[in-house]
């Protein structure tokens, strides 16, 4: 069974990922490869709540990810994974679609049965 830290490190190895972090739904930081996770952890929680509200209001069924698109191209992505939230910072010069596909593939391969453990 891989820990959340292992999962974060595997995400971080994907081409195009500049850094990432994983938090619990209560905001607890479980793993990070970013220097300043506090900048992102609150945003992850706020994003999760509001995207859920939007989803229920429009009648959508599942949120794959939310993207904060920046002019410097270092976009920030939020992936809801069950009761966890994965935040990914993109490298400015990368194939975004390939990077997102690989992150999403990795997310699809893990289960989240225990907090802090991703198998």
């Amino acid at each position: 069974m891989a820990t959340a830290v292992d999962f974060v490190e595997r995400v971080n190895q994907i081409d195009g990922v500049a850094g990432c972090l994983l938090v619990n739904s209560d905001g607890t930081l479980l793993g990070k490869t970013l220097d300043n996770p506090e900048v992102y952890s609150t945003l992850l929680q706020v994003t999760s709540g509001l995207s859920g509200e939007i989803m229920s209001n429009v009648g959508f069924s599942y949120c794959r990810y939310i993207s904060f698109n920046r002019f410097n191209m270092q976009n920030f992505y939020v992936f809801p994974i069950d009761k966890f939230l994965l935040g990914v910072v993109q490298q400015a010069d990368c194939s975004v679609s390939a990077m997102l596909e690989r992150v999403y593939q990795l997310i699809g391969k893990v289960s989240t049965s225990e907090a802090g453990n991703i198998s």
């Binding site: 992102y40 995207s51 959508f60 069924s61 794959r64 939310i66 904060f68």
Partner: peptide
């Protein structure tokens, strides 16, 4: 968090 934020994109299964 980001001074240079341009857009938001929310990717749902349907839209």
């Amino acid at each position: 968090s980001f001074d240079d934020l341009s857009d938001l994109t929310l990717n749902f299964d349907e839209s």
